[in-house]
Amino acid sequence: MARDGGQQHKTTRKSTDEQDDVQVEPSEDVAERKEKLDDDIDSILDEIDDVLEENAEEFVRSFVQKGGQ
């Protein structure tokens, strides 16, 4: 594919340039960022834990549909 070789299509090259631009922005300390991300994920899992149906096994087993189109 052109994307992998040297003869990239204009469309593809453009995207690569943009990507490079984006990466120039000053980044936080990597470890700090990972920690923040982990906290973030923990918080969304906690939130989802609160709304997940109780008894996952039973709930999933009883979800039985008829075929459609």
Partner: peptide, 26 residues
């Protein structure tokens, strides 16, 4: 089963239960 439930509940249309909708609101 919990992973199957996450898959199913992602598509639950109830605003408080649907995981897609929770992600949007978060």
């Amino acid at each position: 089963a919990k992973l199957h439930l996450v898959d199913l509940q992602y598509a639950d249309m109830r605003p408080e239960k649907g995981l897609y909708q929770r992600l949007v609101r978060a």
